[in-house]
Design a binder for these strands. Structure first.
Lengths: 157, 157
DNA sequence: GGTATTAATGAAACAAAATTGCAAATCAGA
DNA sequence: TCTGATTTGCAATTTTGTTTCATTAATACC
């Protein structure tokens, strides 16, 4: 956990909304030179505070896509089996997000596929082929009300 | 829904992994000039195929943060009440993602807060104050196995 | 308190990338 | 095959990012 000052947090706040904002513009808004902003961004990349810079694609515009939530329950909680499941989920391109969670279920997955048929095929590869998966529950999304990976930085500042 | 050719899709495939990739580099890898790549990106921004360009922050590095899933059940499915709920979820900065879904539950939320206390406060504002929310179930995440907003474009190509 | 050391800064020079103008090539439909 | 519209590459231009360097601020150590 890095210690970030108010400038770093202000920079992050801008970038997580639009990382194409010129450093000069950011500098002006927070009272730093463009060079200073550039160095801070560079450092945050090196220290892993910034983990990626990505383009977000509008699903609806590229083709029909289905978004699903899947709650997965495991039989055994043995660490090797859990890790093995994590790896299999992580390496599937259809699995957009994967969370290991507490309570009734062990994993929550966000899955994006072109069709229900593709999802059915995926469940065979991902779930039915894994002996340690007890059950899974699929939730179909009708509407993406809000999407993003933003972190509420205001609470830290 | 825009119709995108193989070049557009190839560009998107690169950008959704790293949108800081120089257009010249993209051009070389797909057999186009940098200018052509730039024009295509511009068009995809204008048509909304590209909805955002963002920096992804590593939660662990900026401070203690808790990630939660919340399944929300509504009393009435009246469209005005649903829309009103959507708006309240959308406008809360702690709500990172919000999906309107089928089945038992009506909404699935991904929530990021600094502490359980903050989450408890949020539930008052977001859930208990809304008469139309029948119940909600909170799932605490232990580990983010995979995070992202990537869309599997290989299935389209 | 004074001094050495380190780290961070801004301004300017520099490099690299994005953007634009324009002529040529490509493509789709008559 | 012709025509009009679209897309392309190249080169010029503009904008942005990066590095250099001297200065300042902060910190630690006598």
């Amino acid at each position: 956990m890095e210690n970030l000052d108010k400038f770093d947090l202000a920079i992050l706040k801008v970038l997580q909304k639009d990382n194409l904002t010129p450093q000069r513009t950011i500098g002006e808004s927070i009272g730093l030179s463009a060079a200073a902003v550039q160095r801070r961004i560079k450092r945050m990349r090196e220290t892993g505070v910034i983990s990626a810079d990505i383009t977000v694609i509008n699903r609806e515009k590229v083709g029909r896509m289905i978004t699903l939530f899947v709650e997965v329950k495991m039989d055994s909680e043995k660490i090797e089996l859990i890790d093995q499941a994590k790896n299999s989920f992580r390496s599937a391109p259809e699995v957009q997000q994967c969370y290991y969670v507490t309570g009734e279920t062990d994993f929550v997955l966000v899955i994006v596929t072109p069709s229900m048929y593709d999802y059915e095929q995926l469940t065979r590869r991902l779930f039915f082929s894994n002996k340690n998966i007890k059950s899974f529950r699929t939730i179909v999304t009708l509407d993406i009300v809000k999407e993003g990976l933003e972190i509420p930085l205001d609470f830290i500042m």
